[in-house]
């Protein structure tokens, strides 16, 4: 048989970083081979971030890192020192759901819910940077998130409804 992998070695938890997770500074200790996805789910108990392939082919593990949506399955945790991470667990503020969460819940934006955290964060990043996206821009922004349940249309509706709600909240706070 051709090349075997190198002899297995027991992994050890040796890496230590500081990062800001959902607004809170954290000291994180983990096995250094792990991706951000594994550290969030296994070492920090934040299982809201899902995974569907671990190869960057589905978008289920998307989180916001330093303001941009990235795939946590392809981010080395050792590279997260000093970074700010937002996961679905951090979308609620002051006990209030984010308008995207409200809209997805009300308008059929999720069914099985497995792609939902990744889509919510991707959509949040879109609306943070572009408060009034067209449907074409929404389609483009979400084109890295596969969903097998909805057919996407109710997701687009939900993002558009959230966009209106955010604008409305902005008006009232002005």
């Amino acid at each position: 048989m051709a090349a075997k992998r190198e002899a297995p070695v027991e992994s050890q938890k040796t890496a230590r970083i500081k990062m800001v997770l959902n607004g809170e500074a954290q000291d994180v200790v983990f096995a250094p081979y792990k991706t951000l996805l594994e550290v969030l789910r296994e070492d920090l108990g934040h299982t809201g971030t899902k995974h569907g392939c671990e190869l960057g082919e589905c978008g289920a593990c998307a989180v916001i890192m330093d303001g941009k949506p990235v795939l946590s399955c392809l981010v080395l945790a050792v590279d997260c020192d000093g970074r700010e991470i937002l996961t679905v667990e951090g979308m609620e503020t002051d006990g209030r759901l984010h308008p995207l969460q409200e809209a997805f819940a009300d308008l059929g934006g999720m069914q099985c819910g497995y792609c939902t955290p990744g889509i919510l964060l991707t959509a949040k990043s879109l609306l943070d940077h572009n408060p009034h996206p067209s449907r074409a821009e929404i389609r483009e922004a979400l084109s890295g998130n596969l969903c097998r349940c909805t057919g996407y249309l109710q997701i687009f509706d939900a993002v558009e409804a959230a966009m209106v709600e955010i604008a409305k909240r902005g008006e009232t706070t002005k």
């Binding site: 949506p69 392809l74 922004a141 084109s143």
Partner: peptide, 8 residues
Amino acid sequence: ATPHIRNM
């Protein structure tokens, strides 16, 4: 690829 991958 995708918007996420382009960010990385």
